[in-house]
Design a protein around this nucleic acid. Structure first.
Lengths: 202, 202
DNA sequence: GTCTATATAACGATAGAC
DNA sequence: GTCTATCGTTATATAGAC
């Protein structure tokens, strides 16, 4: 029935909202039911348990964060252009879903086994073409010696940390929400240049 | 009594261990009591409630992460040397306390009010001398235009994110614990040069 | 101060009527 | 498929003996 699909969808969206905001142990089934505007029993009818409902939400969260990264670095682009695309992708994503990066990383941190379960499903290895591209750029003297893994983590660090640490940033720097928005917008432009050129004049 | 102090200390250390690992909502008073080797009632005798015990642990956590940063950037050093010290400080700290950064940032994320409560206590503003130092370096053409806040967040991002995202990193890159250790050691050397010189040959 | 026992509330989950 | 009512457990917290 179309009725069925709608209810399941409503529950899932409510669960996504509450789990992303409160985490697994902080989330309450009652609150998810309230958010979905239905009865608590329906949650179990459609998803059997809190664990299974969470698993579904978590998997969706990981799929929003990781596959696009691998897709971008697998494209036929320069390293610089890949960096620009990755930075833009994450800044757009986290603007729309501010709780997403903390949710995914926190649950990965607490329950790594839940992550490992399905990480293989969507072939999440670093593409060889990307590894080759970085190594070749180093060999040709275009880049200073750096391992592809370090390169990738540098980009991810600069994109994800300020999203994860928003409350620390706005508190210490005494920012308004608009200030923070501008701060992040500025980073979007800055990060690729920082990665490749650094801060010193040359 | 010395007896009193010892028990309170034991409880606090157990609470620190459990809260840092499991977070507020994931932690159980019973587990803290077990970890401390005492009865559950003692937790309430000394700290009244889970909330108050947590608050005490959280405050200590923030104090381990932030004041040292402000102390370092307030020293009489070049920007490069300050960066080296900050990077070394965080890598040493997170090697000893791997759960600390996720704990502090996650609880800040979920309960920003708990953070704001006492952030003023230990004067956690960016020292003016540091702001002046960055702005002066930019004016003198030694650095490309960058705001001091962005500079600081770049350093923190590169230090903290890989510690927070350890499980993601080791899973995606298929690292052992030793691999991860070596990976982080390598970053410690790399980060200051990345910040200032970037990756391109020049 | 430290223990045992228990109060009290909240949570996840299920049974059963409709 | 959706509701009400409730079970069984577990959580924080307290009372009271020693």
């Amino acid at each position: 029935m179309t009725e069925e699909k709608e209810t399941e969808e409503k529950i899932f969206e409510a669960a996504r909202y509450v789990f992303e905001r409160d985490g697994f142990s902080g989330a309450r089934m009652q609150e998810i039911a309230d958010e979905a505007g239905i009865n608590k029993s329906m949650l179990h009818y459609y998803f059997r348990s809190k664990d299974k409902l969470f698993h579904s939400v978590f998997k969706t969260g990981v799929k929003k964060v990781l596959p696009a990264l691998f897709q971008i670095i697998n494209k036929d682009l320069t390293l610089y252009d890949k960096t620009v695309e990755v930075v833009r992708f994450y800044h757009d994503l986290f603007r729309r879903s501010p709780h997403l990066p903390m949710f995914v990383l926190h649950e990965m941190h607490q329950h790594p086994e839940r992550f490992k379960e399905f990480i293989g499903e969507f072939r999440q290895k670093i593409p060889q073409t990307f590894l080759d591209q970085v190594n070749k750029a180093v060999q040709e003297g275009k880049l200073v010696p750096i391992k592809p893994h370090q390169f990738l983590i540098n980009v991810l660090s600069l994109c994800m940390f300020p999203a994860i640490a928003k409350n620390m940033v706005v508190t210490i720097f005494e920012m308004s929400d608009d200030d923070y928005e501008a701060f992040m917008k500025e980073r979007e432009e800055m990060i690729p240049d920082l990665i490749f050129k650094g801060l010193m004049f040359h």
